[in-house]
């Protein structure tokens, strides 16, 4: 059984906070939902909060990179926020450094980053 991760909108930014242990199908659903919502809502930025995520394996890591690439094509910028130190260490050792993905330490900094790059006016 795969769940759907809720996508919230704040101004012109979409916010996704991952709170569950994701199975692969849920990850793929999220990718599609986000792409659709970016277009439907005319979003300019996407923030993915992984504060609660205890592990990011290569599948989830690839999802983050793919979402960043898809949103770029749809004229939105993605920031991944809240990565735990142990997750960062593990990802790099695994061989995934998520080169194309912008990150910020927390939600506030992530939103500020989008504001600075002119991606979000009022959040």
């Amino acid at each position: 059984m795969s769940e759907r991760v809720p996508v919230l909108r704040i101004g012109d930014v979409l916010l996704v906070s991952i709170q569950v242990d994701l199975d692969d199908q849920t990850v793929l659903n999220l990718q599609e939902d986000l792409a659709q919502q970016i277009v439907d809502q005319g979003a300019r930025g996407v923030v993915i909060d992984i504060t609660a995520v205890e592990i990011v394996d290569s599948f989830v890591g690839r999802m983050l990179a793919t979402i960043a690439a898809i949103s770029r094509m749809l004229d939105a910028e993605t920031v991944v926020v809240g990565m735990r130190p142990a997750v960062a260490i593990t990802l790099v050792e695994l061989g995934l450094s998520l080169g194309g993905v912008r990150t910020a330490l927390n939600l506030e900094k992530g939103l500020a980053l989008l504001r600075r790059s002119g991606r979000s006016e009022r959040t």
Partner: peptide, 27 residues
């Protein structure tokens, strides 16, 4: 993953080592 998490906590692995083991198990 959940099973691996429970075991690595019982084994008292450090947080980084827990994360590494669970990630390896997931892969």
């Amino acid at each position: 993953r959940q099973f691996a998490r429970g075991l690595s906590q019982r084994c008292k692995l450090s947080l980084v080592d827990q994360t590494k083991f669970i990630t390896a198990a997931s892969e």
